[in-house]
């Protein structure tokens, strides 16, 4: 098993946010997050008061669902995506072969097929960025020492 290690540059984040911006403006989505299989939040939109906290939680829960789904996937040999709906909203998650995911929450007034289409399109645009991030060998904590932490 490989050690998963990557460092995402500010430039990567900008590119990812741009893809999310297009996704959000194309269809009515409440929140869109990009995270990795470990539940680390990479980018999210829309920005705003308290939205970071919500995005963090959404990301961790999405990753956990995908982690559990991964086990089911071994049984059903399905694609790695997930959909669930409540009374007013629904959630769709799609994971990339690079083990990053896009998770979106949207109103039930928005057609699921449209959401899938645009999320798939966003994933295709993000795939080269994800590939670049994964292939970039890096020390996760360059220049960081324990005694530099204010703890």
């Amino acid at each position: 098993m490989d050690i998963i290690s990557y460092h995402i540059s500010d430039e990567d984040i900008k590119e990812i946010e741009e893809v999310l911006r297009k996704l959000i403006t194309s269809i009515g989505i409440d929140i869109a997050v990009v995270g990795d299989e470990g539940g680390r939040l990479i980018a999210y939109l829309p920005l705003g008061d308290g939205s970071h906290h919500i995005a963090e939680r959404f990301c961790v829960v999405s990753a956990s669902v995908l982690g559990a789904l991964d086990q089911i996937d071994n049984l059903v040999q399905s694609k790695m995506n997930f959909f669930t709906e409540g009374l007013a909203s629904a959630i769709y998650i799609k994971i990339s072969p690079r083990k990053f995911f896009i998770s979106v929450k949207f109103s039930k007034g928005v057609m699921l097929g449209t959401v899938k289409l645009f999320v798939d399109k966003a994933m295709k645009e993000l795939e080269p960025i994800f590939q670049q991030i994964r292939e970039r060998s890096n020390n996760k904590f360059p220049g960081l020492k324990f005694d530099m932490l204010e703890i």
Partner: peptide
């Protein structure tokens, strides 16, 4: 906690 945090940082992860 402080010890594992220190060891993780010193390990560098992915070096």
């Amino acid at each position: 906690f402080l010890t594992i945090l220190k060891e993780v940082i010193e390990n560098g992860v992915g070096k």
